[in-house]
């Protein structure tokens, strides 16, 4: 073996061994628990799938993730657009506005929403004051609260890929469309939107995947009224010490995430070109 290869190997070895021992082995160990229940090799999976309650949890997890992905791309659109249009101070202002929340702990952000969404909290008082409602709405400990919190946490993940896609659009294509007689709507529908699509799909998929595994925000804002798969996994361990069920739930979650990832990999922002020399 050449000297260069040995050096490369020595550089990679610590991280590979670390990940092997601290990540791959624990995952393998956990998943093995899913198949070693006394009741039979696949009994954990049939328990999860046969139970009406667990099925509802899984459906709810999907619905919330889907709704969150949909809402985030809608809200991401105007922000990504103006980021391509602004310059100088206002550009920096808007960009920091998107990046700043990234740096704040999800726990802190979720806690903020608990204060804001309370039954007698500022948002409800505001809604009553401007006459939208006369009774406080219940915004907390249900799917509404979960979605508000998750949209807030995940929105930057949708904005950045969309902004990237918009930035890559050659402005002369829009001029060409204009010159060929297309109105604003035609140019949007036939040129701008299709060219934004990779960023849009990428952002939406990313948000969807992250939503599926979300734990803190649904646990605090949803509580026992809006249980998601990750909360179910945690409760298997904390409340019932049912490791094999937790393992099976984890495996199901991971398989779904990886399957979606495989389908949409080409749209996703990470790793793209990061190692392309």
């Amino acid at each position: 073996m050449k000297r260069r290869h040995i050096e490369t190997l020595l550089l990679l070895a610590p991280a590979v061994i670390f990940l092997g021992l601290a990540f791959v082995a624990p995952l393998a160990r956990l998943f093995s628990l899913a198949f070693t229940d006394e009741a039979g090799m696949f009994s954990t999976f049939s328990t999860l799938i046969d139970s009406e309650v667990y099925r509802r949890v899984m459906v709810n997890t999907f619905l919330v993730a889907f709704a969150v992905a949909l809402i985030t791309v809608l809200l991401a659109w105007p922000v990504a657009y103006i980021l391509t249009r602004l310059k100088g101070f206002w550009f920096a202002f808007a960009l920091y506005g998107v990046l700043f929340p990234f740096w704040i702990s999800v726990l802190v952000r979720t806690f903020s929403w608990m204060i804001l969404l309370e039954r007698n909290g500022p948002l409800n008082r505001f809604l009553i004051n401007i006459g939208i409602t006369d009774k406080p709405l219940s915004l907390l400990f249900n799917d509404t609260g979960v979605m508000i919190g998750m949209v807030h946490v995940l929105l930057p993940y949708a904005i950045l890929p969309l902004y990237g896609a918009m930035l890559r659009i050659d402005q002369r294509l829009l001029l060409a469309s204009d010159g060929l007689g297309a109105g604003l709507f035609d140019t949007f529908r036939r040129i701008y939107f299709p060219l934004c699509l990779p960023g849009l799909v990428g952002g939406a998929t990313f948000v969807f995947l992250l939503s599926l595994g979300f734990f803190i925000t649904p646990a605090l804002l949803g509580g026992s009224n809006a249980i998601t798969l990750s909360m179910l996994i945690a409760s298997f361990i904390n409340d019932r010490l049912a490791w094999s069920l937790a393992a099976a739930g984890s495996l199901i979650l991971l398989v779904i995430v990886l399957a979606l990832l495989a389908v949409t990999a080409r749209f996703l922002p990470f790793g793209k070109g990061v190692y392309a020399r």
């Binding site: 595994g213 734990f215 945690a234 979650l253």
Partner: peptide, 8 residues
């Protein structure tokens, strides 16, 4: 998903 890593 972090919950999976955490449990493992």
């Amino acid at each position: 998903p972090v919950i999976v890593t955490a449990v493992a």
